[in-house]
Design a protein around this nucleic acid. Structure first.
Lengths: 323, 323
DNA sequence: AGAATTTACGCGGTCCGTAACCATG
DNA sequence: CATGGTTACGGACCGCGTAAATTCT
């Protein structure tokens, strides 16, 4: 059992079972990869693939298990070489970040600016996705870190570092009648058409729960996956927006009036997650530190989130949310 | 980074940093191993060893980390080949069991008899140790399974399968005055010199706790690591014995009278633990099943322990005990 | 001085690439 | 017949073993 054989197997799967494509990606020639796969099956004495003639279509059950172990082995090996590059004072490398739109658009820019200044030789990859996709990406090691708010707590394979807490604000065009309402309650909000995130994004779960807890049903006329879309339709006059507070930009959003809603909804905690068994290079850890430092001032009141695993944020329970 | 290099590294550590011994164990020649180690350090660009001249004395911090990852990688590889042998209908192999004295002497014999009959080609290794040692052994993969009662719950790297529950009994020479005491209480027991297990063995923790919970201090005149020693001194008349109920053998212990004490002490649950990330061969899983089946009748009343993770045994809480 | 490790060197195996062959849609 | 995979074979590389040199006990 040799490493190149396992590499061929893993890459084959990642290439959708195209042997030639696998060979290309590994800088090998097709027969070599064919031979690797054959050797694995021979040495183990087990068929690993679903075949149709000579074509490989997928893995059978044994194949899936072998694949998982092969990934483990290669992962451990990757950790070793990462550790090596790290100790060689080599400050170059790649940092693959997964983030939701809100994070990528409104939170990450200053973080990345500072990080890039500190590590000019580190290439950054910013991958975007839904929270569910992001979790899958870290677990598969398609990204090194995932920064998001939803559903990072449940995966046993991940370590989640709480970074900062945030809450929502209301946005409306200047002069909108909701801006005169005093006091602003969930009930009052229900009197207006609302534009906010779709389920699974940016705390929409807890938002809906807050209404439901009071037996209220908000009139959400539009659910969007990102804040820019919400702002656009608020400007169109379609309704009032409820967005993450950090997504309001005083400089750019001068035509929109902002009202803090942190008394009405539970606080959310944005975390950075990475695989438990992954060796994080120094600059990857440093990115987390920079992220936490740069976002420390975001929570408008109350102190920043602790560094460790001390329960949920103050003010209100922070369940691990509905994915 | 090649596998043989990692194998050399890991074996080197297991051989106490003797290169020649490592070479022998790997069926190689010394220069080959030397080269492997050198290659690892070169490829990683990091010194891994504490050296004194040419002698290797130990690992430095980087070395420790690399070693851990190397073990991960080789472990994953071992899983693959185990899986292979398994699917090839190969019913031969080795089953390395770790057990405490009580388990090995009084519980395992019928289990092993049946298992050996089912799998004549499987070589059995029975390793004995204290619960703490056993846990260390499974974690280090020095044994495949550990069967013991204490301290298996805490290790995140282990899966623990609850197998059967048991409690204590009192043993005393026929005619001993304690046998006339009615009802038998913890207080009454405190009136006699007691011989039982030392701390860390066979439920001694919970036993002491039970006394302490009533503000009682038992007069333990002798603490022993195994039941045979306890029986011996009970026969000598040194005191009354409190032992695990399954360690009383009606056929052999005719000179000792037995009184059930399960109303006085919490129930203990004996579990089998194995590394979470380890592929268990069919016969290894089968051993667990046989163990559970053969021990199902041990609990004198109440039903057997469930197979899964449903809380502690009934009757009394079963904390994970004091190691 | 002797044991243990490193350096030097050559042989043998094997791994990959080229080329020809085979199957499938 | 074109695309994708397997079989066949030769050359280059390199990993291991033998032997000599070196260093620490």
């Amino acid at each position: 059992m040799e490493l190149r054989q396992l590499r061929s197997l893993v890459t084959l799967v990642d290439c959708g079972f195209s042997v030639s494509q696998t060979a290309e990606r590994l800088h090998l020639v097709q027969p070599a990869v064919s031979q690797h796969l054959k050797q694995i099956e021979e040495e183990l004495g087990v068929r690993l693939f679903q075949r149709h003639g000579k074509r490989l279509l997928g893995l059978n059950e044994a194949g899936e298990r072998v694949l998982a172990f092969a990934r483990d082995a290669l992962g451990a090996l990757g950790n070793i070489s990462a550790l090596g590059r790290d100790h060689s004072q080599d400050d170059s490398g790649v940092l693959r970040i997964g983030a939701t739109h809100t994070q990528a658009r409104y939170v990450l820019p200053p973080v990345i600016r500072q990080f890039a200044a500190e590590y000019p030789a580190v290439a950054l990859e910013l991958h975007q996705g839904t929270p569910a996709q992001l979790i899958d990406m870290v677990v598969r090691d398609a990204v090194d870190l995932a920064v998001c708010t939803e559903g990072l707590g449940e995966h046993l394979a991940l370590t989640a570092v709480p970074c900062y807490r945030w809450n929502r604000c209301l946005i409306a065009p200047a002069g909108h009648p909701v801006l005169e309402q005093e006091p602003l309650t969930l009930g009052v909000l229900c009197g207006y058409p609302i534009i906010t995130y779709v389920f699974g994004f940016t705390g929409r779960g807890n938002l809906s729960n807050a209404f439901a807890a009071q037996g209220l049903v908000p009139r959400v006329v539009l659910g969007a996956a990102d804040t820019d879309v919400i702002k656009t339709y608020v400007r169109e006059g379609l309704g009032i927006g409820i967005i993450a507070a950090m997504a309001y930009q005083p400089s750019a959003d001068t035509d929109l009036v902002r009202l803090d809603l942190s008394d009405l909804f539970p606080w959310e905690v944005t975390k950075i997650a990475y695989r438990r068994d992954k060796y994080l290079r120094t600059f990857q850890r440093r990115f987390i530190a920079v992220f936490r430092a740069k976002t420390a001032g975001l929570a408008p009141r109350g102190q920043a989130v602790g560094s460790g695993l001390e329960g949920p944020a103050p003010g209100q329970a922070v369940p691990d949310s509905d994915r």
